[in-house]
């Protein structure tokens, strides 16, 4: 434990003239689940793709005409994706946002072909295919064609495929986007099991609950920059008050309050009152009838909205 699985230092990536990733640094210790959170367009996917060589980083660093500092700022288990793309991909299972199976072929054939891409012989591949299908509960779909699978099944199959070569690292790009709650929890459970088995997991998400449920540590990115880092609990404690009172209806009744322990935000027809002092918040909620307000603990989503801003990013 505590060996470094992924190291990213002063990473920069530009497309044409716009900077997609701006001087990003982070480290992922072996055996943990690490999350990259951020709104669409924050540079999450690009960061991941740089790790396995799908995207090439800028090789000289320094954003504003600074001198190049270090050209080797990215390593995955000691390998630099610019030099050892094959080694990294050999030990890494990659789960993309969009599925990319051979739709004409069966589940089994897809997995068989993919295990060949890792250099597994048929004899080695067969038990692995059995195992990964069993693990992700798709054994009964072994002979189905890809086009017969539901969206949730395809996503699970992507995970199964990524596990074929017994990876040390799993990279998942928004693994549960667009899936129903059952499948989401199923996937989270499987990821927890894999983590227990010692697999390092790196995932991007914009579901705060996902990050809260399975990530040991995370960074929040916005516009290519890291804007916060910590465990989910730390991020909440560091960035936001403990409790929130959401006034959903009749928010005109709330005339404001000068109490120093409150922070008030109003947007459209909603008023959010944050505080570490539960009694104060309760006092205000007494003015409203049940159903007009919602009193809860603050969560990562509040943190996320607070620090990335409430505006749209696109």
């Amino acid at each position: 434990m505590n060996k470094v699985a992924i190291k990213v230092k002063n990473l920069v990536k530009k497309y044409n003239d716009s900077t997609i990733i701006d001087n990003l640094s982070f480290e992922v210790p072996e055996g943990i689940c690490f999350g990259i959170l951020g709104p669409n367009g924050a540079g999450k996917t690009t960061t991941m793709e740089i790790l396995y060589g799908k995207v090439q980083r800028e090789q000289t660093n320094g954003t504003n005409g600074h001198e190049a500092r270090e050209s080797k700022e990215v390593s995955v288990f000691g390998y630099d994706p610019l030099d050892n793309e094959l080694e990294i991909k050999f030990i890494t299972g990659i789960i993309p946002q969009e599925d990319n199976f051979d739709v004409e072929l069966s589940v089994f054939q897809n997995l068989l072909i993919y295990s060949k891409f890792y250099g597994l012989s048929k004899k080695q591949a067969l038990p692995r295919i059995e195992y990964v299908l069993e693990f992700i509960d798709l054994t009964q779909k072994k002979d189905s064609r890809i086009r017969e699978l539901s969206g949730g099944m395809k996503r699970r199959l992507l995970i199964a495929r990524a596990l074929l070569n017994d990876p040390k690292l799993l990279i998942l790009d928004e693994p549960t986007t667009g899936l129903d709650p059952q499948v989401r929890h199923h996937i989270w459970n499987k990821l927890r099991i894999l983590k227990k088995e010692g697999v390092t997991i790196l995932l991007t998400t914009h579901y705060m609950e996902e990050a809260y449920q399975i990530c040991d540590s995370l960074i929040i990115m916005d516009k290519g920059k890291k804007i916060s880092q910590g465990t989910p609990i730390e991020l909440i404690e560091k960035n936001i008050e403990k409790y929130v009172l959401e006034i959903i209806k009749n928010n005109s009744k709330f005339k404001g309050d000068n109490s120093p322990v409150l922070r008030v935000e109003t947007s459209h027809d909603r008023t959010l009152i944050y505080s570490d002092n539960l009694d104060e918040i309760k006092r205000i909620s007494n003015d409203f009838s049940p159903g007009d307000y919602y009193l809860r603990q603050s969560n990562l989503e509040d943190v996320f909205l607070k620090i990335t801003g409430k505006r749209f990013n696109e």
Binding site: I94, N100, D102, Y114, Y118
Partner: peptide
């Protein structure tokens, strides 16, 4: 369309 190549280069393949 099918993005098959993306799948292939995610395995140990250039």
């Amino acid at each position: 369309f099918d993005k098959v190549y993306d799948g292939m280069v995610s395995a140990s393949m250039t």
